[in-house]
Simulated scan of single mutants.
Amino acid sequence: MTHPEGAGDDDAGRTEAVLDREGLDALVRVLVRRGRTVIGPTVRDGAIVLDELESAEALPFGWGVELQAGQYRVRRRADAAAFAHSAGPQSWKSFLHPERVRQWSADRRPDGGMTVHAEAPESVSYAFLGVRPCDLRAIRILDRVMSGGRYRDPAYLSRRTGAFLIAAECTEPGATCFCVSMGTGPAADAGYDLALTEVVDADGHRFLCRSGTPEGAAVLAELPRRGADEPTRQAAARAVDEAAGRMGRSMPPVDLRTLMRDTLEAERWDDVTARCLSCGNCTMVCPTCFCTTSEDVTDLTGDHAERWRRWDSCYDLDFSLLHDGPVRASPRSRYRQWLTHKLGTWHDQFDSSGCVGCGRCIVWCPTGIDLTEEAHALHREAAHREGAS
């Protein structure tokens, strides 16, 4: 099993085999038998979403997606590929760091006092099937944020520790993907128990499967499989290499951290924030945004109260509210805070970028704001300013 902070790279646990669709279904059955709650992609309500799977038959075989800025559509494919789709509206953050978590409840005693009941961490053993390489990196980033420092989140740790991660290497990037620019894909490099590369060609529909941990190797040993043959290895490698050359977006080839630092007063911020609704969609779908707030609720009698933690967004006017008003009162300041933190100052806090190149924020922005376009525009403005000086 993989653990927070990048464990799961034990060479002793590495084995390789080829699975067919029967082997994929057996994988789900074995994980369920081992007491895992298996979460994976499935088609529902006009989208490819993440949900609990009872069998591999629920996977989106034969479904793909069409993505653009502010647009998402599922579409039928000409083949029966299960993992030939790009990131959907959810990320694995929804299960590891849920939108709402009760922290405690309290009940009034007969003497007028209150008895507080601490909320016990949820006991769950997840297996995530079909984790994209960009999302593998996002999970590692969340590990660093939620459990890598002085203040660790027990609710996160209870879900994350021991989670079994099955990567699905990307063979068909979407029009809004830019994982190559961020160094997060399309190949899975670390942090998985098993990694699948789907191959659909004249030789059939199959999955090259390699283990990344001893537990991954043990699970693989329980599945109907055959030895990894060289044609399948080559086809899998070729599919991933070709995906790297078909990214729909890219970042400017510069140090983004420096670019964000040196363009704080750029005119481009006015242009983008004239289009920004401050709705916070980008933070909700982002697989690494982690900000929360607390809210207290009570029943009508006042005898029962609860405290809940829920996701919050730096686009919310009250997010930086102090006694004299919000620190970031304008949409310009809030958008700039989000982008410069994601691409720049995240490094100062967590030693990495906060962006993995999944493109969700582009797809689910109602006005189609594209952070790669904004980064290129900031780069052009900075280059023009330097040339004119």
Rank of each mutant, 00 (worst) to 15 (best):
M1C: 08
H3D: 11
H3M: 15
D9S: 07
D10I: 09
E16P: 00
R21Y: 08
L24G: 00
D25R: 03
A26G: 10
V38C: 10
I39V: 15
T42E: 14
L50I: 08
E52G: 15
E52M: 10
E52Q: 14
L53I: 02
E54Y: 07
S55T: 15
V65Y: 04
V65M: 09
E66K: 14
E66Y: 05
Q68T: 04
Q71T: 11
R76D: 02
D79W: 04
S86E: 06
K93S: 01
S94L: 11
F95G: 09
H97E: 06
R100S: 09
W104T: 09
A106W: 00
P110R: 01
G113W: 04
M114V: 13
T115E: 08
V116R: 07
H117K: 06
A120S: 13
E122T: 14
S123N: 03
V124P: 11
R132L: 13
C134F: 00
I139R: 03
D143H: 03
D143F: 06
R144H: 15
V145W: 12
G149Y: 04
G149S: 13
D153E: 14
L157Y: 02
L157R: 00
R159N: 14
R159G: 02
R160Y: 07
T161P: 03
A168H: 04
E169M: 05
C177V: 06
V180R: 07
M182H: 04
G183R: 13
G185E: 08
A187E: 01
D189A: 00
D189Q: 03
D203H: 08
E215A: 06
A218F: 04
V219W: 06
A221D: 07
L223V: 10
P224N: 03
A228R: 01
A228F: 09
R233V: 12
A235T: 13
A235S: 14
A236M: 10
A239L: 08
A239Y: 03
D241I: 13
A244R: 05
R249D: 01
L256I: 14
T258M: 13
T263Q: 11
A266V: 09
W269R: 14
D271T: 15
V272E: 09
L277H: 06
S278N: 11
C279A: 11
V285H: 04
V285S: 01
T288D: 08
T288S: 05
T292C: 12
L300T: 10
L300H: 11
D303L: 05
A305G: 10
C314W: 07
L317E: 12
L317T: 15
F319R: 08
F319V: 01
L321G: 01
D324E: 15
R328S: 12
R332Q: 01
R334N: 11
Q337L: 03
L339Q: 12
L339R: 06
L339D: 01
L339T: 10
H341A: 05
H341W: 11
G344N: 10
W346Y: 07
D348P: 12
F350L: 02
D351N: 12
S353A: 12
I362T: 15
I369E: 05
I369C: 04
D370T: 07
L371M: 02
E373C: 13
R380Y: 09
A382Q: 13
R385W: 08
A388G: 11
A388K: 12
S389E: 02
